[in-house]
Amino acid sequence: MSTSTLLTDVAIIVLAAGAIWFGSGWLEEASDRLASHYGLPQVVQGAVIAAVGSSMPELATVVIAGLAGSLAIGVGGIVGSAIFNVLVIPGFAGLLTDDPIESNRTLVYKEAQFYMLAVSALLITFALGVIYYPAGDGLSGTITRPLALLPLALYGLYVFIQYQDTADHVPGDDESGNAVDPGRQWLRLAAGLAVILLAVHFLVEAVSSLGMIFGVPEFLLGVTIVAGATSLPDSLVSVRAARARRPVASLANVLGSNTFDLLVAIPIGILLVGEETIDFAMAVPMFGVLTTATIALFTVMRTDLTLSEREAVGLLGIYALFVGWVVLETLDVAVDLLPNA
């Protein structure tokens, strides 16, 4: 492969990431204004409205990668994005704000714990595929459409819980009555989504090309490059919310976005392609990292119900160790914990 092709792929990735950021700005602003217009509580704004909106790049990645026969890139992107979200986004938000980011018990004991349940549910779904639909030798299994419905059903429960919170919520004077044109905001949201879809299409093609050049498994490319690019919207939403003194919405977006990605985005990709073979031996170490990252975030959120600057640095340090480990595994320098890496 020529050097010009390599540079072209890198340039496409950079431009696609920029376009994702741009489109997500439209989408995030529109979803935030619509949530305020309809008088939704701050936790629901962050965990559902903003989270689903900022998760569109991950969903688009899974759909486009699945239709292109490279669903492993999409699945890897979801897992990597989840790790990025719980470590890097709160870390940056904590460093870019003057005061510690405040949490609350609802966020810790509902959103964080339901997200932990989402991680377990997806891992169990993968395990069921290995047990009942083994694919070849080793620990590979086929995730079928009926299995993909299991995490979707759990997300339905999550939405029902959020609906109950919304029904019980009485909006204050600062949450309703603002002059917002709903029709215009829905159009703005749709335009942002269109930009994201187009950018993700080119992003997946460029990443697949890089995988062929360097011989790197698609799952690992998804965990690193695709995850970082598609997590830009979540970063934008959470940092903006934190700087606007809406810390609960900032952290709720991280947890809600990850819950959506794991329970909706991956199953939708499988429903589209019909079935997908998952290398359980590759997935389990990554889910181990994701679980560790989630426990770390849960711990710092619960400690005094605030995220301090020192804790933010600690979260970023854990992510740096994760990226370093993946790079060393890919170069066959570290202990071989990832098969085929």
Rank of each mutant, 00 (worst) to 15 (best):
D168C: 04
H169D: 11
H169L: 11
V170M: 13
V170G: 06
V170E: 15
V170C: 08
D173G: 03
D174F: 10
D174I: 06
E175R: 09
S176A: 14
V180Q: 06
G183F: 10
R184N: 05
R184V: 10
W186S: 04
L187A: 12
L187I: 14
R188Y: 02
R188Q: 09
L189W: 14
A190E: 02
A190R: 01
G192W: 05
L193P: 00
L193F: 10
A194F: 02
A194H: 00
V195C: 01
I196D: 00
I196A: 00
L197R: 00
L198W: 04
A199M: 06
A199Y: 02
V200W: 01
L203V: 07
L203H: 01
V204L: 03
E205L: 11
E205H: 03
A206W: 05
A206Q: 09
G211V: 12
I213D: 10
V216T: 15
V216M: 11
P217A: 15
E218R: 13
L220F: 13
L220H: 08
L221C: 09
L221Q: 05
G222L: 07
G222V: 12
V226Q: 05
G228F: 15
G228R: 03
A229T: 11
T230Y: 05
S231P: 00
S231V: 00
P233H: 07
S235C: 11
S235M: 15
L236M: 15
L236I: 14
V237W: 05
R240I: 12
R240F: 12
R243N: 10
R243G: 06
A244L: 10
A244P: 01
P247R: 06
A249M: 15
S250I: 06
L251S: 10
L251P: 03
V254R: 10
G256I: 12
S257R: 08
S257W: 03
N258G: 13
N258C: 12
F260C: 09
D261A: 09
D261P: 01
L263Q: 07
V264K: 06
P267W: 05
G269S: 04
I270E: 08
I270R: 09
I270L: 09
I270D: 08
L271F: 05
L272S: 07
V273E: 10
